[in-house]
C-alpha cells in the first residue's frame, strides 16, 4: 500500500492541501479587520489545526494496521454515541438500555467486524439491539415518554455505532484483485466525504446566496452544495486508481458518497435543532463534537459499503 503510486500522490495532495489551507488562514488572520470577520477566521484556523490532528490520527491508525483502525472507529462511535445520548434527555429508567448500548452492542459490533462475521454484524443492531433495548427499557416500568425514549436510544445506536462501523468494515471486503489494498477504500471514502464537506463550506462562504434549508441549517447553501459535490466528484473520479473502480464507476460512487454525506449533515442538523443545540459537543476545536465531523460519514459509509459489496465482491 505504502509503495502505491496513487497512494503517495494522495498523501502528498492532502499534506499540500492542508499546508495551503494553513497559509491562507494565516494570511486571512493578518488581514481580518472587524470583530465578526476575525471570529470567522479564528474558527477557520481552529478547523484547519484540527484537520492536521485528525489526518495524523487516521494515518497513524492505518499505519498500525486494521486492529488499530477498527479500535479508532470504535472509540469515535463511543464518543459520538455519548454526545448523542447526552443531549437526548434520557431518564434514570433508561439505565439498562444505555448500559447495553455502550458496553454490549458497541463493542460487539466492532468485534464482529474484526472477526469479519458479516452475517451477524449486519443484523446485530437492526435486529437484536432494536428488540433488546426496548425490552431492557421496560424493566423499570416507567412508561412516561416510553416510545420517544426508546426511539432516541435506537436512533443513537444506529447512527453512532451501526452506520459509522461500516467505514472500517470496508477493510474486510474481499474484492478480487484488490487484496491487501482495502485500507485505500476507507481512505477514499473519508477523503471524498470530508472533502465534500470542506468544499461545501468553502464554496458556501465564498459564493453562498441561496439557502437550501433555511429552517434546518442556515449555513447550507445551494452554491455551497453544488460546488462541494462537484469538487468531491472531481477528486473522487481522479482518485479511481486507489480503488477497484473504473473512472466512470468512481464518479458515480463518489457522487453517491457526497450526496449521502450532504443529507447526513442536513438530517443531523435537524436533530440538533430539535434538541436546541448548535453543536454536538466540544471535543474537536472549531468543529464541535465528534458527531459534527462524522454526520456525513454516518450516512455515506453504509451505502458506499453495500454498493461496493454488492457489485465488486463475488
Amino acid at each position: 500500500m505504502i509503495h502505491d503510486r496513487s497512494f503517495l500522490l494522495l498523501v502528498g495532495g492532502i499534506l499540500a492541501f492542508l499546508a495551503v489551507a494553513s497559509l491562507i488562514g494565516w494570511v486571512l488572520a493578518r488581514r481580518a479587520a472587524d470583530a465578526a470577520s476575525r471570529a470567522t477566521v479564528e474558527n477557520l484556523n481552529a478547523r484547519i489545526r484540527a484537520w492536521w490532528v485528525m489526518v495524523a490520527v487516521l494515518a497513524g491508525a492505518l499505519a498500525l494496521g486494521w486492529t488499530a483502525t477498527i479500535l479508532l472507529f470504535g472509540l469515535l462511535s463511543f464518543f459520538a454515541l455519548r454526545e448523542f445520548l447526552s443531549l437526548t434527555p434520557t431518564k434514570p429508567a433508561d439505565h439498562w438500555p444505555l448500559l447495553a448500548a455502550f458496553y454490549v452492542f458497541l463493542p460487539a459490533q466492532y468485534v464482529l467486524i474484526g472477526w469479519d462475521w458479516y452475517g451477524l454484524f449486519s443484523v446485530l443492531i437492526p435486529v437484536y439491539a432494536y428488540l433488546l433495548l426496548p425490552i431492557l427499557g421496560v424493566v423499570r416500568g416507567d412508561t412516561e415518554d416510553y416510545v420517544l425514549r426508546m426511539a432516541r436510544i435506537q436512533w443513537g445506536v444506529m447512527l453512532a455505532v451501526y452506520c459509522i462501523s461500516h467505514a472500517p468494515a470496508l477493510l474486510l471486503l474481499p474484492i478480487p484483485g484488490y487484496e491487501g489494498r482495502t485500507p485505500l477504500l476507507l481512505v477514499y471514502l473519508i477523503v471524498v466525504v470530508q472533502l465534500s464537506d470542506v468544499m461545501q463550506y468553502v464554496f458556501g462562504k465564498l459564493f453562498g446566496r441561496t439557502k437550501v434549508a433555511p429552517r434546518v441549517s442556515p449555513s447550507k447553501t445551494v452554491e455551497g452544495l453544488a460546488g462541494g459535490v462537484a469538487a468531491a466528484v472531481a477528486i473522487g473520479t481522479a482518485l479511481y486508481g486507489l480503488t477497484p473502480f473504473t473512472p466512470l464507476q468512481a464518479m458515480g460512487l463518489s457522487a453517491v458518497i457526497a450526496i449521502m454525506g450532504f443529507f447526513g449533515g442536513l438530517v443531523l442538523s435537524a436533530a440538533k435543532r430539535s434538541m436546541g443545540v448548535k453543536d454536538w459537543g466540544t471535543a474537536i476545536e472549531g468543529h464541535g463534537g465528534v458527531l459534527d465531523r462524522l454526520d456525513s460519514v454516518c450516512f455515506a459509509a453504509p451505502v458506499f459499503f453495500h454498493l461496493t459489496r454488492y457489485w465488486f465482491t463475488p
Binding site: F78, L81, R82, E83, L85, S86, T90, K91, P92, H95, L98, L99, F102, Y103, G281
Partner: peptide, 14 residues
C-alpha cells in the same frame, strides 16, 4: 442520568 440511584455501573453520559 449517568449514575442514577440503584445503578451498579455508570453509563457514559457527558
Amino acid at each position: 442520568r449517568a449514575f442514577p440511584k440503584g445503578a451498579l455501573i455508570p453509563a457514559p453520559i457527558a
